[in-house]
């Protein structure tokens, strides 16, 4: 770990220019120890009053410092946004969830092993260096939206649920703004080191959830062990039914792309239709049409199809039995 200065911010206005923000530190400290990143200055924001969950209009405003454990257990979240609660509880471990914050979790870096290994070429760590993951061990890599420069995935669970809930990220800084979560994370393109729209000097202060939409909410995460493993694929689903037809469909996917993935074409196909295997197959076809395997991760294509089928059957009241 390289030496760094440490400053504890007293207010949102008190963020030193160029400093890296630390909240729970569950990812940042690992990266610093391995010198994947080596910030010269850290600013600790954990004393800022950003740890509240409060109503905003008909929706909910979640402070950036609300811990994953607290958010998962919040009665309003459990009642009105159960997909979020389920996604949070599917992530990491109890200890990590006690430390990890809402804002920090959005900023979580990929788990690509080549990104973590300074001996390996990585365009995220060292723009222009190349991507050692391509042609390497690619089990946890992207099948959607990747580029020749980077095939890493966004690893989190919470953001996948937020994507299905149409959450908005509140950003403070020189010019405060609100950015839909859909636009917050970026695809890698030829600048995989730029992962979000957050600019230097900006800070996430909250995540805003719109009014609850009800419906059946599911978070199905498939992983290599029962706990403390990143998603191979995951599906966050908010599905409403009206008179035997699908009246609302919001589907977001984790573990498959550089950002929580969502495909409006899939959802519009489902709207107004009666649930059936044929329909869900068609939805999966649309979802996976642009999918591209990189060696070992080819299994994610059938796995995502299966996870989607199971989730849609479950959420629309069809049988999922073996």
């Amino acid at each position: 770990m390289r030496e760094f200065t440490f400053h504890r911010a007293a207010s949102v206005a008190d963020l030193p220019a160029g400093a890296t923000i630390i909240a729970g530190g569950t990812n940042l400290l690992d990266l610093m120890k391995l010198e994947v990143i080596a910030p010269e200055a850290l600013v600790d924001i954990t004393r800022l009053p950003l740890d509240r969950v409060e109503p905003e209009g008909e929706g909910l405003r979640i402070g950036a410092l609300v811990r994953n454990s607290d958010l998962a257990a919040h009665p309003t979240v459990r009642r009105d946004y159960p997909v979020l609660s389920r996604a949070l509880l599917a992530g990491a471990s109890g200890q990590l969830r006690n430390m990890a914050t809402t804002g920090g979790n959005l900023m979580q870096r990929t788990r690509c092993p080549y990104f973590y290994d300074r001996r390996m070429a990585c365009n995220k760590r060292d723009p222009g260096a190349g991507c050692a993951a391509i042609g390497g061990v690619t089990r946890n890599h992207a099948i959607l939206g990747a580029s020749d420069h980077c095939i890493a995935t966004y690893p989190g669970d919470m953001a996948v649920a937020l994507r299905a809930l149409d959450a908005v990220v509140e950003i403070d800084g020189p010019s405060p703004r609100r950015v839909p979560l859909a636009d917050f994370h970026l695809l890698p393109g030829d600048t995989p080191h730029v992962e979000t729209v957050l600019q230097p000097g900006e800070i996430i202060t909250a995540v805003i959830l719109p009014a609850p939409v009800g419906g059946q909410q599911r978070y199905r995460k498939v992983r290599d062990r029962a706990s403390y493993a990143f998603a191979l694929v995951s599906v966050a689903a908010v599905v409403g039914m009206d008179g035997g037809r699908i009246s609302h469909a919001a589907l977001a996917f984790g573990g498959v792309a550089h950002k929580p993935w969502r495909d409006p074409e899939v959802e519009s196909l489902l709207l107004g239709r009666e649930p059936s295997d044929a329909l869900f197959h068609e939805a999966a076809e649309i979802l996976l049409r642009p999918a591209q395997a990189h060696g070992e991760n080819a299994f994610k294509i059938p796995l995502l199809r299966r996870a989607l089928m199971a989730t849609l059957r479950d959420a629309t009241g069809m049988e999922t039995t073996a």
Binding site: G135, V137, S227
Partner: peptide, 20 residues
Amino acid sequence: PRDGHAVSRDLAEYHIPTHA
């Protein structure tokens, strides 16, 4: 596959069984 190095080299990536 190219240089033989151990890729899954921490306890998050080398999956020993958890309690669950």
